[in-house]
């Protein structure tokens, strides 16, 4: 079954074609990567997925529904971790989890979630006093507190030190094990390669390549996804 279907998605801001005909599908239970450099159209694409933006053209279906029309209903079933989003400085970790849990009809047990994601020792710490890695861990847990079927993670590890990054990877791997559909947006090729079943490589609003990281690497005759990206982009210029 397809959890997400995006067909010829287009979105323009002024003169800038942020997304210029993007098509992909994500199967239920899959971890799907959207990778590319800044300005490739990644964030606009995921914001259309969660109904924060209305596409200019093209079709988006998430769990069989149109996010632009059914944002509220879909929000019960989608968890999102947005790029650079944050919480009030003085809110405490446990408080945030409990509060976000109250937004959903069938929420996960926030105490269990706190335990499972290693946030228990931070329960009484204020958001503003957390380290970058701890903040990301909380934002990830908040994306899961509604017991979502689809989780969208945008720039999960940007700004984290290497140890916190690896730790976050481990958490995403744990999440994969639960059978949740994950859309992982990143400008780190190694991260996408390590975590994703399939990947769409985006450049200038278009899909340049799609498939398993191994396939893309093999097709381009390169050694890594990052090299594959530069081979694809280089050939285009």
């Amino acid at each position: 079954m397809e959890a997400i279907e995006v067909t010829d998605l287009r979105k323009t801001y002024g003169d800038t074609r942020a997304v210029d005909g993007v098509t992909f599908t994500v199967r239920a239970g899959e971890t799907f990567g959207i990778v590319g450099h800044n300005g490739a159209g990644k964030t606009t694409t995921v914001e259309c997925l969660i109904g924060l933006r209305r596409p200019d053209a093209g079709a988006v279906r998430v769990l069989g529904e149109d996010p632009a029309r059914r944002r509220r209903a879909l929000a019960q079933r989608i968890g999102a971790q947005l790029q650079e989003s944050s919480l009030p400085e003085r809110i405490k970790v446990a408080e945030a989890l409990r509060m976000f849990g109250s937004f959903y009809r069938d929420a996960a047990d926030w105490r269990q979630l706190m335990e499972r994601w290693g946030l228990q020792p931070l329960a009484r710490k204020a958001f503003g006093d957390l380290s970058g890695g701890q903040k990301q861990r909380l934002m990830l847990a908040l994306a899961l507190v509604g017991a979502p079927e689809v989780v969208v993670l945008d720039e999960l590890t940007t700004g984290l030190d290497p140890i916190a990054r690896r730790e976050t990877w481990r958490l995403v791997n744990d999440l994969k094990m639960t059978g949740t559909t994950v859309v992982l947006v990143s400008h780190y090729f190694d991260e996408t390669e390590a975590l994703c079943d399939r990947v769409a490589v985006l450049a200038r609003g278009r899909v340049r390549a799609m498939g398993t990281p191994g396939d893309i690497v093999a097709q381009t005759g390169t050694a890594s996804l990052e090299e594959a990206y530069f081979a694809l982009e280089g050939a285009d210029r």
Binding site: L52, Q76, A80, L82, S85, S86, L87, P88, F103
Partner: peptide, 18 residues
């Protein structure tokens, strides 16, 4: 203003509540 600037409002917009 800080809720807007720090994208707290945007984060809430991805949940079922307004």
């Amino acid at each position: 203003a800080s809720y807007r600037e720090r994208k707290v409002l945007k984060r809430l917009a991805t949940t079922p509540i307004s």
